[in-house]
């Protein structure tokens, strides 16, 4: 049992990174990781060892994230994450003109499901099939989400020109 905890503990840094990519707020991201770990400990007998503990933890974290987002959204009387592909484009369109210089900010404007897909593959380095398994979606869905995410990110994120970088020094 301690071995399982040890295996989980090793994944905490990655879980924190994934959570931060999902929620662009360090404190809330750690809340999410904490919820994920507590749940994982409670449910550890469900880990069937047919995959890596890392993927299993990513899956738990994502599902906690989705549930919490759904709750938040319900409060705001909006649609839940998974229900509406149209939802994300609305804020994105509004803010479209304001390009982000910070790619993390640009990430935060992506629809959550695209963010999750991009974070798992580009940042966490998962293979497509593994990431699709974590998100519980077919691999084709994952691939189209990724393509959309990357194209949107490209329009949202414009690296500062070199002169601006120099001027921006604090």
């Amino acid at each position: 049992m301690d071995d399982v905890k040890w295996l989980m503990a090793r994944e905490i840094p990655r879980l924190r990174r994934y959570a931060l990519a999902l929620i662009n707020d360090p404190e809330q991201a750690d809340d999410l990781v904490q919820d994920c770990l507590e749940r994982a400990i409670r449910k550890r007998h469900q880990w069937r060892r047919h995959g890596s503990i890392r993927s299993w933890l990513y899956r738990i974290l994502y599902s906690v994230f989705v549930n919490q987002s759904a709750r938040r959204n319900r409060d705001r009387r909006t649609l839940t994450l998974e229900q509406s592909p149209a939802l994300p484009s609305a804020p994105a369109a509004q803010e479209h003109r304001l390009a982000c210089h910070d790619i993390a900010e640009a990430m935060a404007r992506l629809p959550a499901e695209q963010r999750a897909a991009l974070a798992l593959t580009a940042i966490e380095g998962l293979a497509y099939d593994e990431a699709a398994g974590v998100l519980g979606i077919p691999i084709g869905t994952l691939r189209s989400r990724l393509a959309r995410a990357r194209d949107t990110l490209r329009t949202l994120h414009e690296p500062l020109p070199q002169s601006a970088v120099l001027r921006r020094v604090k």
Partner: peptide, 27 residues
């Protein structure tokens, strides 16, 4: 784009772990 993303989040894995997270495993 991938490089930029990795770089933007790389600091997170280098940070010391908050004790509340390691403590969560002791539940």
């Amino acid at each position: 784009q991938t490089d930029a993303l990795r770089e933007a989040y790389a600091h997170r894995t280098a940070e010391p772990l908050p004790s509340r997270l390691t403590g969560a495993l002791e539940t």
